[in-house]
Design a binder for these strands. Structure first.
Lengths: 106, 106
DNA sequence: TCTTTCTGCTACATAAAATGTAGCAACTGT
DNA sequence: ACAGTTGCTACATTTTATGTAGCAGAAAGA
């Protein structure tokens, strides 16, 4: 059972890792934040701009959460993906290619 | 430029398909709904139960949206993934495997 | 040293989104 | 005719996100 302190258990009643992950990624801006950090490290403010000016309140909330989940870290160069975060976004990459075909088909 | 009627343009100012997709997938329950439909087709109510009793209001909203995006369809056997939805969730599958390692590492 | 300009972050009122519960109309099977 | 489905809607309450302002600390320049 995966239990994250201060985290909702919505969609996690089974405790199956995938459910927990889908729950986390399904939070507004989380996916986008990971995507942006996958492009490059960024300071809080830069990241905020890149995320279409998402509110700092929420950005901070998400970043705190992603750090506690060991997907994101913070150093002198600002925020970036941890090794784990990197491996996740790498697996998410094929979806980027898929999106092009999908958009054409729409 | 991809424009979806009645859809927020949050995170879609560039109109890049991936941004639109991240925006859609980043909506609460969307990812989970796709995941559940990837397991098998289901009626509205069955799907609702599988999604930990998500409110029918929201479930319907998401399903409508996913149908307009050509990711989900509805037939006599209830809701299910379209061909497009299938190809998306297939690309999402590696993330399921990843989640196990991630959970162990937490 | 004294600004200026970054940094990450917080407070708080407003607005938007999600929940929970009840129930409707249409169809299916007995 | 009746019971049990189906997909779905209404609506009041609660939760979440937005937008704006601004604080405290570090670094860089004059």
């Amino acid at each position: 059972m995966v239990k994250i302190p201060g985290q909702s258990t919505r969609g996690s009643r089974t405790g199956r890792p995938i459910m927990v992950l889908l729950d986390v990624l399904g939070q507004r801006w989380t996916l986008r934040i990971l995507w942006e950090l996958h492009q490059s490290r960024a300071s809080f403010r830069t990241l905020q701009e890149r995320c279409d000016g998402v509110s700092p309140t929420l950005l901070n909330k998400r970043l705190k959460n992603l750090r506690s989940l060991n997907l994101v870290d913070l150093d002198k160069d600002g925020y970036g993906l941890s090794a784990m975060g990197q491996s996740l976004t790498e697996r998410l990459a094929p979806v980027g290619a898929w999106a092009k075909d999908w958009a054409d088909q729409l």
